[in-house]
């Protein structure tokens, strides 16, 4: 959106008056009696125009279909392995061939989406819920409540996520060895969220502190809104945008973290079909440089998924924060 004159040096773009930005005609057609649009509607309008958003949406939509209906993508059974087919080349209905165990690589990747996405989605939900509630309370009420929550978040923040998660998972796995699909996902989610929420708390607290002294909050108080209504209806919704951006990006980060935990042999149990486990299994092959397809397929699936969420986060950031978009 720069009105750059030819040959302008960087930093000089702003000298040009932005004549075409709001022509007089545009001002004339503004309907002054119209109901003002909410910030979310405006954000959605901007989001719709972003190619980044549509690219991310396509990726996430395909992923969602893959999670819900894996049979649409493959007819093979990810758990059926016959050693006779070890490293067999691609064939009809098996686009990438077979892995070390003789299981269909593509089928394992398709079915593996479920566990990885489940960890990403639920870890994000728990983190955001914990972070938004604690951050909003700390920022809004201040005083001793703020001190308590801030110190507590400092404590959890000081423990590195990966290290803390390893300790938590290893303890829980020793107490409850067999958990099934959702039990295993729950443990990884709990371990990651336990050390990740302070980030959101800090962000939310800062945003609430900024918003709570703005005029529209005073206005709401003046027309008789109670403290809680103010917090719920006016402050939290207006302080939420930075959290939404980091939540979107952290969804991808959690998926990567799960695969890192599986790589260390401590994430989801080895019997579960997940990208992390497939990548972990592939590591010995990569060391010898053979059958690299066993690693590339799940690695690409994981990278594209994470890319989808990172791009969505970038698009949402631009849509929610017009200031950052212009600069």
């Amino acid at each position: 959106m720069h009105d750059t004159q030819p040959g302008a040096r960087p930093g000089q773009e702003r000298y040009v008056a932005p004549t075409d930005e709001t022509p007089l005609r545009a001002i004339d057609v503004v309907d002054v009696d119209a109901v003002p649009e909410s910030q979310w509607r405006e954000a959605w309008k901007r989001l719709r125009k972003s190619p980044l958003f549509w690219l991310a949406s396509v990726i996430i939509l395909v992923l969602a279909v893959m999670v819900a209906f894996p049979t649409l993508f493959t007819s093979a059974d990810p758990n059926q392995a016959s050693l006779g087919k070890q490293f067999d080349p691609p064939g009809d209905g098996h686009p990438f061939g077979y892995n070390f165990q003789g299981a269909d690589i593509w089928a394992r990747t398709v079915y593996g989406a479920r566990a990885s996405v489940a960890v990403g989605v639920f870890a994000t939900l728990v983190t955001v819920l914990l972070g938004v509630v604690t951050g909003a309370i700390a920022g809004f009420y201040g005083g001793i409540v703020d001190t308590l929550i801030s110190r507590l978040s400092d404590i959890f923040f000081s423990i590195p996520v990966l290290l803390g998660s390893i300790v938590v998972i290893s303890v829980i796995n020793n107490v409850y060895p067999n958990k099934g699909f959702w039990g295993s996902v729950f443990v990884v989610v709990l371990a990651l969220a336990l050390f990740a929420w302070p980030q959101i708390t800090r962000q939310m607290r800062g945003a609430v502190l900024e918003v709570k002294n703005l005029e529209f909050v005073d206005a709401a108080t003046a027309i008789g809104a109670s403290k809680l209504t103010n917090l719920r209806r006016h402050i939290v919704p207006n302080a939420l945008s930075p959290v939404i951006v980091s939540a979107t990006i952290s969804l991808g980060v959690f998926i990567v973290a799960e695969s890192a935990l599986s790589f260390l042999g401590i994430g989801l149990p080895q019997t579960m079909v997940s990208w992390g486990n497939d990548l972990s299994d592939a590591q010995t092959l990569v060391r010898s440089g053979q059958h690299l397809v066993v690693m590339w397929v799940p690695a690409t699936a994981l990278a594209v998924t994470v890319l989808g969420f990172v791009l969505l986060g970038e698009a949402v950031r631009e849509a929610l924060d017009p200031k950052a978009r212009k600069s």
Partner: peptide, 10 residues
């Protein structure tokens, strides 16, 4: 963006 998306161990 690509580097951010690929797991470090890969």
């Amino acid at each position: 963006l690509i580097l951010l998306s690929i797991p470090i161990f890969v």
